[in-house]
Each structure stands twice: as C-alpha cells, then as structure tokens.
C-alpha cells in the first residue's frame, strides 16, 4: 500500500503547475524515502526532475516501491478542486496499480472530496544525470528571474547568459533590437530573496532557448529564490528548492554556435 498525506495541498498544486506544461505524462517513482519524477519534453531538449522527500508529508507509508504513471493534465484537473490549505492524500495499491486515489480534506474537516485517476502506461527514456562541478552558480530572486526571461522573450527567442566575477548578464536580440540585463553580485546579502550571488570558478557564456526558460519559471511560486548552475558546453540547471524537503530541477541543453 502506498499512502502519503500532505498537510498543505497547495504545494502539490504548485508542483503540478511547474511540470504539466513541460511533461504531459510522468512516472512518479515512490519508495520509502521520497517521491521522484523525471520527465523530458517531447523534443528531449529540456528535462524536469522533481524530488519530494517523505518528511514533507504528515504521514507517508510505502510498503513496496511503486511507480505511478501520471497524466499531469488529469492530476491537475483534480488539484484544481483543492484549496491551498486542504489536506491531500495520495493512495495507490503497491502491486501494479492501475489507478491512484486522491482525497482532499478541507481545513475545517467539513468537506471531503475523493477522486480516482487512471494511471497511464508510459515508456519514457530516463536519463542518467551525473553529479557535476559547475563553473558558475547564480542564486537570485525567482521572481526577478521570471521577469527577466519574460522581458527578454520580447526581443528574441534565445538568451545569452554570461557570468563574470562581478555580474551576470542576460542578452537577447532580434528584429526589435538588442536587450541586455545585467545583475551585479550583491555585496551585502541582507534579504536573501532580493540579492544576487554569483559563485564563479571560471567565466561562462552560453545561449538557451527562452521558450523553455519561460516554462521553467512556472515553478516560481515554489521558492523565493532560484539557483542557476552553468558550465561551458553543458546543460543549464535551474533549481527551485521545495523548502528543506525537496526540489524541482530543470535541465536545458544549450544552443551551440555551429
């Protein structure tokens, strides 16, 4: 039997909003320690990896490892019925389940909704992502990053990200013209979610498709800050922490000058 009770249903709503436009169907791997999801977009240019540890749940029981093939649009429809402060309970048999139950309990306990969603058979490719030392890490406000990606996508379909010791520059150009947004490394980190910290081992200069970055920033409500990890000729990693009990990480392959 797999059963997980989340005190704040709003978190699951935000997680679905963060993944459903990038990955339509996903394999939710549930084991004794955590629920993990890894999925790629149809073009295999971008990947999302979600991890939510058992400690995020008020109650978590997973007698045997079980993989739930979820259609994220169906799951999102159910979660649209949930209030942010509803308790959400996920339940599934642990012997090749063909469905998953979701129970929503209102905070005052006067309203209980239960849904059964059919699981889908998915044969996606899972990628092995090696632990990597990155040349640059940029930690910044998630709202600021969302704003920059949205603003620059009016000028072009790609953003060039260059990191130096002092700052990180986001550039885009197209027929409208050229736009550069430069963030300077904050000297004093008084309010974490408003400062920019650049941890640089060596300068990087990479180009990425803004279409995918604007899909990644759907995770903005999950965390006040976002961390970008970059290395020359390597996929970009955009990470949103889920409190202390997990993360949503997006990987995006660079566009490389021919």
């Amino acid at each position: 039997m797999f059963e997980a009770k989340l005190q704040q249903g709003g978190l699951l709503k935000k997680i679905l909003e963060s993944v459903k436009d990038l990955v339509v169907d996903g394999l939710w791997d549930c084991d004794g320690a955590a629920i993990t999801l890894q999925g790629m977009d149809s073009s295999h240019v971008a990947l999302v990896e979600m991890l939510l540890r058992a400690e995020a749940f008020e109650h978590y029981r997973c007698d045997r490892n079980v993989t739930l093939g979820m259609n994220h649009n169906h799951l999102s429809k159910i979660l649209k019925c949930a209030n942010n402060d509803d308790i959400v309970i996920l339940k599934a048999a642990d012997q090749n389940p063909d469905s998953c139950s979701l129970i929503l309990e209102s905070k005052n306990g006067e309203k209980t909704s239960d849904f059964v969603v059919s699981l889908v058979r998915i044969d996606t490719d899972q990628l092995g992502i090696p632990e990597t030392e990155y040349s640059a890490h940029v930690k910044m406000s998630s709202g600021e990053f969302q704003r920059i990606c949205r603003d620059l996508s009016q000028f072009g379909d790609a953003v060039q990200i260059t990191c130096s010791k002092q700052d990180v520059k986001f550039s885009s150009s197209g027929e409208t013209g050229k736009a550069n947004i430069t963030l300077t490394h904050s000297a004093t980190v008084d309010k974490e979610e408003e400062s920019v910290t650049v941890d640089l081992k060596e300068p990087v200069d990479l180009t990425f498709a803004l279409r995918f970055l604007n899909l990644f920033t759907k995770a903005t409500p999950i965390s006040d800050t976002v961390t970008l990890s970059l290395s020359q000729e390597a996929p970009l990693v955009v990470e949103y922490k889920i409190g202390d009990s997990g993360h949503i990480r997006y990987f995006l392959a660079p566009k490389i000058q021919e």
Partner: peptide
C-alpha cells in the same frame, strides 16, 4: 544562428 542541441548529447540513457 546557434544550433539547439538535445540532452542526449550530454546525458546517457539511464
């Protein structure tokens, strides 16, 4: 114009 790669250029199938 820069060419878009895909992730399998960088990561192997698990």
């Amino acid at each position: 114009t820069p060419i878009q790669n895909d992730l399998q250029e960088f990561y192997s199938l698990a």
